[in-house]
């Protein structure tokens, strides 16, 4: 079942994508097909199966609370398009 155009627009907004009208129609079909495929999982009986929280059956992997040096600021900022006074500089969001 295809997604509605409204649903596609909502998802696109959340993902910050701007889509043409043609793309919306195309994606409504494609996303619908993906959901249908995933829906086949719902046909499997799971009444006696414990819910899985992670694909690996490993738990409790921890780090000790010990400080390690951070990365030098110049290296951290090296890939930033805009930098000022040790800060990342970005368009204002209000």
């Amino acid at each position: 079942m295809a997604l509605t155009i409204k649903e596609v627009e909502h998802v696109a907004l959340l993902a910050r994508l701007s889509l043409s009208e043609d793309e919306k129609v195309k994606l409504s079909q494609q996303l619908g097909a993906i959901l249908n495929y995933a829906d086949t999982l719902n046909t499997i009986p799971t009444d006696n199966v414990e819910p899985l929280t992670h694909i690996l059956s490993v738990h409790n992997v921890f780090r000790a609370d010990e400080v390690q040096p951070s990365m030098p600021r110049e290296e951290m900022l090296a890939n930033a398009p805009l930098v000022e006074a040790g800060y990342y500089k970005v368009p204002k969001i209000m």
Partner: peptide
């Protein structure tokens, strides 16, 4: 009026 924000992580 400023068009920018500065980010400290």
């Amino acid at each position: 009026t400023t068009p920018f924000s500065l980010v400290d992580l």
